[in-house]
Every structure is written in C-alpha cells, then in structure tokens.
C-alpha cells in the first residue's frame, strides 16, 4: 500500500458530530439576526450622494466663509469663497484706465453689510493675443449698492476687444483683517 493511501486511511476514522451540537447550530442559524449590511451600505451611499449633490449646488449658488489654516492646522484667517453670483461687474474704458462698477446683488447678506472698502485683489486684462495688465487695485469705499473702482493703466488702450477677469476682491473694515472675496467675474471691453 502506498504511503499516501496509508495516511489517508489512518486518518479517516473520525467520530460523528454529536446530534445535540448539530441541532443547536441549526437552531441558531434559523434564529440568526438578519444582516443589515446591505441596507446600511445603501443608506450610507444615499446619504453621501445627497451630501455631495448638496455641496455641488451650494458651491455653485452661494458664497460661504472658509477658514485659512497654516501647516500646523491653526486657523490664521478667513476667506469668502464662491461669491461669483453675489457681485456683478461692468467695465468701461476711460482716459485713465478702466472704470469697474461693482454691484452688490445680495447687499444684506454677510459679509457685505460690514465691508467699508472694496479693492480688487487679483485681475487680468487680456486681448486676443496677450495679457495687457494684471495685479491689484487699491480700495474704494463701498456703499449699500456697490462701488466703482478705477483700474489705472500706464498707457491708454488701443482699439480692440479686451476681457477683464477678476478672481478676487478684498473687503476691508476698520479694525478688521482684510477679507478676500473669491469668485470669477468677467467683463468684455471694446475700445474703438
């Protein structure tokens, strides 16, 4: 007889499962608690999807405050994000530069009632070929409806079409840290 066969036969003799143990296990299986795992996953997924959709809508329509944190996680400041729908700009070329009218669409909503002055923190002026000007513009007083800020230019604009893009304003009030107001505003300018 081969060794494998001997080992197999030697180990084949085993006692049967005690009947009581068998019955106990079958009874336990019959009375087991139903698993809620699938339901739990479905509910969690639904909640996550709802939260994400909500966040998407929120981001698109309404501005909100965000903390600015340093590398160590300490809050060092505040910004106001996604304010695109809350401000409206129009730009008109003048002799000194470009006059930008900023209208407050939600003047009663924070932070606008508390802002005394508004500056342009980041803008670019482009024509079809290149960037004509970019940088920051000092603050101008903000009224209940808005303000007008002049972007000074070193040389008058030559005829053509330009696009002014502002990505950040900066609101300030006496005794408060300046508040960056972020979004994306564009205005087309035609110089004839």
């Amino acid at each position: 007889m081969k060794q494998d066969e001997i080992i197999r036969k030697a180990l084949s003799d085993t006692p049967p499962v005690p009947g009581e143990l068998h019955g106990r296990l079958v009874h336990a299986y019959a009375n087991r608690k139903p698993s809620h795992r699938r339901l739990y996953i479905a509910v969690t997924a639904l909640a996550a999807a709802t939260a994400l959709c909500g966040a998407g809508v929120y981001v698109g329509t309404e501005g909100h405050f965000e903390d600015v944190m340093n590398w160590f996680g300490a809050v060092t400041g505040t910004t106001y994000e996604d304010a695109t729908e809350e401000l409206k700009i129009t730009a008109v070329p003048t002799e000194d530069g470009i006059a930008v009218s900023v209208a407050l669409l939600t003047p009663d909503k924070a932070p606008y009632p508390y802002i005394e002055q508004l500056a342009i923190s980041d803008y670019t002026l482009k024509n079809k070929k290149k960037t004509v000007a970019k940088g920051t513009v000092p603050a101008a007083a903000l009224t209940d409806t808005g303000t007008e800020i002049l972007i000074p230019l070193e040389a008058p604009l030559v005829s053509g079409t330009y696009t002014l893009t502002i990505t950040c304003f900066e609101g300030s009030a006496k005794g408060d840290q300046p508040l960056p107001i972020k979004g994306k505003w564009t205005a087309d300018i035609t110089v004839s």
Binding site: T14, P15, P16, L25
Partner: peptide
C-alpha cells in the same frame, strides 16, 4: 451543508485539537 460536510469539519477539528471537548467548541 452540515449533514454533508459537518462530520468532515468536525473530524478535522478533532484531529487538529486531539481533544473532543475542544473540538466541539472549535467546530461550534
């Protein structure tokens, strides 16, 4: 499943533990 494979699993537990009491607990 237990009728078909129970004795095989239980037997394995018996062999592994070398003790029926421990094997019963392990099987269960």
């Amino acid at each position: 499943l237990l009728q078909e494979y129970g004795s095989s699993i239980y037997g394995f537990c018996c062999h592994l533990t070398g003790n029926r009491m421990t094997a019963e607990d392990l099987y269960q």
